[in-house]
Design a binder for these strands. Sequence first.
DNA 1: AGCAACATGAGAATGATTGTCAACTCGGCA
DNA 2: TGCCGAGTTGACAATCATTCTCATGTTGCT
Lengths: 131, 131
Amino acid sequence: MTSTDRQPLRPTRQRIAVTEALASFDDFRSAQEIHDLLDRRGAKVGLATVYRTLQRLSESHEVDMLRTEDGEAVYRRCSDTHHHHLVCRECGATVEIEGPAVERWTNAMAAEHGFADVSHTLEIFGTCPRH
Amino acid sequence: MTSTDRQPLRPTRQRIAVTEALASFDDFRSAQEIHDLLDRRGAKVGLATVYRTLQRLSESHEVDMLRTEDGEAVYRRCSDTHHHHLVCRECGATVEIEGPAVERWTNAMAAEHGFADVSHTLEIFGTCPRH
DNA sequence: AGCAACATGAGAATGATTGTCAACTCGGCA
DNA sequence: TGCCGAGTTGACAATCATTCTCATGTTGCT
Ligand SMILES: [Zn+2]
Ligand SMILES: [Zn+2]
Ligand SMILES: [Zn+2]
Ligand SMILES: [Zn+2]
């Protein structure tokens, strides 16, 4: 039980706009790209608010966040089950993938070395068929 | 076959110093921390050079690089075979792990979706037996 | 309505990383 | 040994994603 739990987010105009924006695309995008998207749509949301909202949403696992190979955080709406991603390095096209065997393997490895409270990150990068 | 191959690094004083520094610790450290370490040892190496050297070494897989939760790149010397890490979230203790099955799985997943030029990241975090 | 906690935004600040470029070093080779 | 072109370095500026500040606007609730 971590003590990092927070109050539920208030459904402000800005947060609704960010959530809607997230629903409108399928690839991983940076906070700035999402902010630009909102701008184009006419939704006036401050950049800092976009950052804050995405952060909170990813903390509560309502969106996926991962880091591109050059360290930039990118976000994408996600399903509610544990999964990983196959991401196109060129266009960001993403495929969610699951692998029970991998989950078992990571747990076994951790157990073998006596590690507890285990978590893991696994992302696959490549260039999709269109590139 | 990527075209990113480069000439072998010249064994300059600075590069030797960075390599020696890397040999002196076992956990993942940032470029700046390694630069500080060199400073304390009296090795005068510019920060930009430390960055450049670590970058080239990680490109050629002579050191491991991974990103901390907040996106900072950290480095560590490593064995020459492809592997992943089991990292203690409390003390940074690191265990290198290998898993042919996982390698096969990631390749299969990528192939199944027509992705080429594939790479992947996989790190396991937990608390080691001492914590 | 009225209050307190929460949320926002504009802009400044931070901080890791990269770019610039003139000076320096290395490895051949005559 | 001396010279040359390619590779390297370092001081510093520049980038650029992300965070901070804090005055002002909102929300949930009574
Ligand atoms: Zn693509
Ligand atoms: Zn998993
Ligand atoms: Zn530990
Ligand atoms: Zn692997």
